[in-house]
Write a protein that binds this DNA or RNA. Structure first.
Length: 283
DNA sequence: ATGTGTTCCTGTCCGC
DNA sequence: TGCGGACAGGAACACA
């Protein structure tokens, strides 16, 4: 699934076709996503103007003129596809509907935004904008990793005393928002930290290394338009290219790319998910 | 409280 | 070419 950089890339791709525009028509083809879509969602969206598009962690929030906000989560396989309207200098037609097109928004200006999600782990909800931060899915989420609140002192405090592997701690959205399996692997690799280490055993120096590396990797990935794996594409259908910068994720058996390291990337399973790391330079 | 395992669902890939 | 199993970017939930 899309992690923070991919979600940010999607948000940026939706901005020019959604922000400031009316939703002329909303259509729900399939309401049973991760949970059932809210009552009368299509009617509540139709005729509303998108006043702003925000991102919080891996969620996109569209603030509407109706006083409500549309929450969008892409799960593992969700995509927001943009067609029609003026994209760049060219007019694009709408492609034929696809099998997993669950929600379709026709925007003022001629663009169509289609939420497509084969696995249906994604979600949408509507809430009063004023209470968005208190939404069940948002209220327990930790600080944004690119914001000032996420710093060495904060992270050290949250990891202290925790027996769980540092990999699991960084995946915990309550500790830090937006990291997923890819970017945790990349951050720990660059920091030279073994993902199996207990979170509470991190030294001050290690936490101090980790924080700026997490920021760097996310910023680089956003600049690259995210990573394109099986399902994920940018809103305009273009591919992000950060996957070419992976040093650990998905590289089982391949040489470690750390300077002067002679190791090879290994794959293990931690709490049911793949972990990629170099046993030589990640201690 | 904390940590781990299971589950939701569909698609793809790999080995036989 | 078909078939079965493993695996996939998330995260809520049930349980020890």
């Amino acid at each position: 699934m899309p992690e923070l950089p991919e979600v940010e890339t999607v948000r940026a791709g939706l901005m020019p076709v959604m922000e400031g525009r009316l939703i002329l028509r909303a259509q729900v083809n399939r309401p049973d996503l991760r949970f059932s879509l809210p009552e009368r969602m299509a009617e509540r969206l139709t005729g509303a103007r998108v006043m702003g598009l925000r991102r919080r962690s891996k969620y996109i929030l569209a603030d509407l003129s109706s006083g409500e906000s549309l929450l969008i989560h892409l799960g593992m396989s969700g995509r927001m596809l943009v067609s029609g309207g003026m994209l760049g200098a060219f007019h694009h037609d709408h492609p034929a509907p696809q099998k997993h097109d669950h929600v379709v928004l026709d925007m003022e200006g001629g663009a169509r935004v289609t939420f497509n999600d084969a696995r249906r782990f994604g979600a949408m909800d509507l809430m009063q904008t004023a209470w968005a931060a208190d939404h069940k899915l948002l209220r327990g989420i930790g600080p944004e990793p690119l914001g000032n609140e996420f710093n060495e002192a904060y992270l050290a405090g949250r990891l202290a005393g925790r027996a769980m592997p540092v990999k699991a701690a960084l995946l915990d959205q309550g500790i830090v928002a937006g990291l997923g399996n890819i970017y945790v692997a990349e951050a720990l690799h660059r920091a030279g930290i073994n993902p199996r280490r207990a979170a509470g055993d991190m030294t001050g120096a290690e936490v101090a290394r980790l924080v700026p590396l997490i920021r760097d990797i996310l910023a680089e990935a956003i600049a690259a338009g995210g990573s394109s794996l099986k399902d994920y594409r940018q809103a305009d259908g273009e591919l992000g290219y950060f996957q070419h910068s992976f040093r650990a994720y998905g590289r089982e058996g391949e040489p470690c790319l750390s300077p002067a390291c002679t190791g090879h990337i290994e794959r293990i399973v931690q709490s049911g998910r793949s972990t990629f790391f170099c046993p030589i330079c990640q201690r």
